[in-house]
């Protein structure tokens, strides 16, 4: 069953008049979990807009609802009430199949524990979102995946399995995988949580470069160092947004900034692959 409201291959963004408008718009989002005898209000009415090209760091202590919000934004779950517009689509009313389709077409995920499939090689891992998007895997899509793997610096490890890679390398595979469908939003859940500080910086620089090419990134973290890479820092507490401010002291990557890696490739995904 195709997503009826989404004509194939057109994004919620392309037909809009203002290309720099909000890519994510959340209004009064409530998420309540009903456990056995306890009712947990994870989100108590969150409203938020994210512009295209923004780099948001979502912070807060554990239990503040930041992970729940990220799951909502990642279309992994539906809100108890409220609305979530991705582009112009109200995805909060979609069913499971439609949400799956949204995830495969318009979202990229980066997880704390990389979440690569151990049985697959680097290239095969990168290919997965295309597979579920229903794109026929051809030489051309394979070239695209190899291109992405090369961009994140893994051009010489295309046929390695995740077990043969270091944590930083695995996370770079995950970045390539998050880019393969040319997503509108990249959602990162503590992308550096399992990495040492040097590797963390490297990963963050790559994300920053991605952001420089126009990718919208929403990242959950509880480390101030990491959050300082974002253009905008949102702090949450008890299911509410506590503060939401522009980051005045942004960390800017140095080492990779001018090393000639061209991330413009990400915006050149042949949409009709």
């Amino acid at each position: 069953m195709p997503v009826s409201r989404l004509p194939a291959r057109t994004s919620p963004l392309t037909e809009r008049d203002n290309p720099m408008a909000d890519v994510v718009r959340v209004t009064d989002l409530v998420k309540t979990y009903y456990l056995e005898s306890v009712t947990v209000q994870a989100l108590r009415g969150v409203s938020l807009t994210v512009e295209e090209g923004d780099f948001v760091a979502l912070m807060g202590p554990s239990g503040s609802g930041k992970s729940t919000l990220l799951n909502q934004l990642g279309c992994l779950d539906r809100p108890t009430s409220g609305h979530y517009y991705l582009g112009d689509e109200d995805v909060s009313q979609m069913d499971d199949d439609q949400l799956s389709e949204i995830r495969s077409r318009f979202l990229g995920f980066i997880f704390q524990s990389y979440n690569l499939l151990p049985q697959y090689t680097v290239v095969e891992n990168v290919e997965i979102p295309l597979l579920y998007q229903g794109i026929k895997l051809t030489e051309r899509t394979r070239e695209w995946c190899i291109h992405l793997a090369t961009l994140v610096g893994l051009g010489d490890r295309l046929d390695h399995r995740p077990m043969q890679l270091s944590g930083g390398q695995q996370q770079r595979v995950a970045i390539a995988r998050a880019l393969v469908n040319n997503p509108h939003v990249i959602l990162a859940d503590e992308p550096t949580g399992n990495l040492d500080s040097r590797t963390s910086d490297e990963i963050m620089e790559r994300l920053q470069q991605l952001n420089n090419t126009g990718k919208t990134i929403i990242m959950v973290t509880h480390e101030n160092d990491i959050a300082s890479w974002g253009k905008r820092v949102i702090r949450m507490r008890d299911g509410h947004i506590e503060t939401d401010e522009r980051n005045q002291h942004r960390t800017i990557g140095k080492a990779l900034a001018n090393d000639g890696v061209n991330f413009n490739g990400f915006s050149q995904l042949p949409v009709n692959v």
């Binding site: 990642g74 499971d96 495969s104 979440n115 579920y132």
Partner: peptide, 16 residues
């Protein structure tokens, strides 16, 4: 289970 979760996050439908 985790693999299933990863696949679902990356866009796999239930029938996949």
């Amino acid at each position: 289970t985790r693999e299933i979760g990863i696949r679902r996050a990356l866009g796999a439908k239930r029938r996949d």
